[in-house]
Computed example of a mutant assay.
Amino acid sequence: MHADRLRFTREPRTTVRFTGTGKRKSTSHSDRTRLPDPVVPGHAYRDVEVVYHLGTRLVGEPETRRGDDDTDG
C-alpha cells in the first residue's frame, strides 16, 4: 500500500487470524517505509508505504469430509 498522506485518528489495533480447518504453520509481517510503530494519532505521515507478507501452509494429515471417498465413479 502506498499513500501520499496518511493520518490516524486513533492508534490502530490489528490482529491476524487464520480461519478454516486443519493444522497449519503461518507467518506474517510488514515492511514499513516512513511509518513508525506505533503511529502517533493526529500526526500526518507523508509518502508512506507498507508491504505486507503472509504465508501459511497445512501440516499433518489432510482431514476428510463426510461423503468423500477414494472411489472413482
Rank of each mutant, 00 (worst) to 15 (best):
M1S: 05
M1V: 06
M1F: 14
M1E: 12
M1H: 08
H2V: 03
H2C: 12
H2A: 09
A3Q: 11
A3G: 15
D4N: 14
D4Q: 10
D4E: 10
R5D: 14
R5I: 03
L6T: 09
L6E: 05
R7Q: 15
R7W: 08
T9G: 11
T9E: 03
T9H: 13
R10C: 09
R10Q: 11
R10I: 11
E11H: 11
E11R: 13
P12N: 04
P12T: 01
P12M: 09
P12R: 06
P12G: 12
R13A: 15
R13E: 09
R13I: 10
T14C: 12
T15P: 07
V16D: 15
V16N: 15
V16C: 11
V16Q: 15
R17F: 04
R17H: 14
R17Y: 04
F18D: 12
G20M: 12
G20I: 15
T21Y: 09
T21A: 13
G22A: 03
G22L: 02
K23L: 13
R24D: 01
R24S: 14
R24G: 10
R24Q: 14
K25M: 10
S26W: 00
S26Y: 06
S26M: 07
T27L: 07
S28T: 04
S28H: 12
S28E: 10
H29D: 15
S30K: 15
S30H: 08
D31R: 07
D31V: 15
D31T: 12
D31W: 03
D31C: 13
T33M: 05
R34F: 07
R34M: 10
P36S: 11
P36M: 04
D37H: 05
D37C: 02
P38E: 01
V39K: 04
V39M: 05
V39F: 03
V40R: 12
V40Y: 00
P41C: 01
P41G: 05
P41V: 00
G42S: 00
G42C: 04
H43C: 02
A44N: 02
A44P: 03
A44Q: 11
Y45M: 08
Y45A: 07
Y45H: 03
R46L: 02
D47A: 14
V48C: 14
V48H: 13
E49A: 13
E49R: 14
V50M: 12
V50F: 14
V50S: 06
V50E: 13
V51A: 12
V51I: 06
V51K: 14
V51G: 09
Y52L: 10
Y52N: 07
Y52M: 08
Y52C: 06
H53Y: 09
H53V: 12
H53G: 00
H53S: 09
H53F: 08
L54I: 12
L54Q: 12
G55A: 13
G55V: 00
T56W: 01
T56L: 00
R57S: 06
R57E: 13
R57V: 02
L58T: 10
V59T: 07
G60V: 07
G60I: 02
E61F: 01
P62I: 06
P62F: 01
E63N: 02
E63S: 09
T64Q: 08
T64A: 03
T64L: 04
T64D: 05
R65Q: 11
R65Y: 04
R66F: 02
R66Q: 07
G67H: 00
D69N: 07
D70K: 06
D70G: 02
D70W: 08
T71N: 07
T71F: 14
D72L: 05
D72S: 05
G73T: 03
G73R: 13
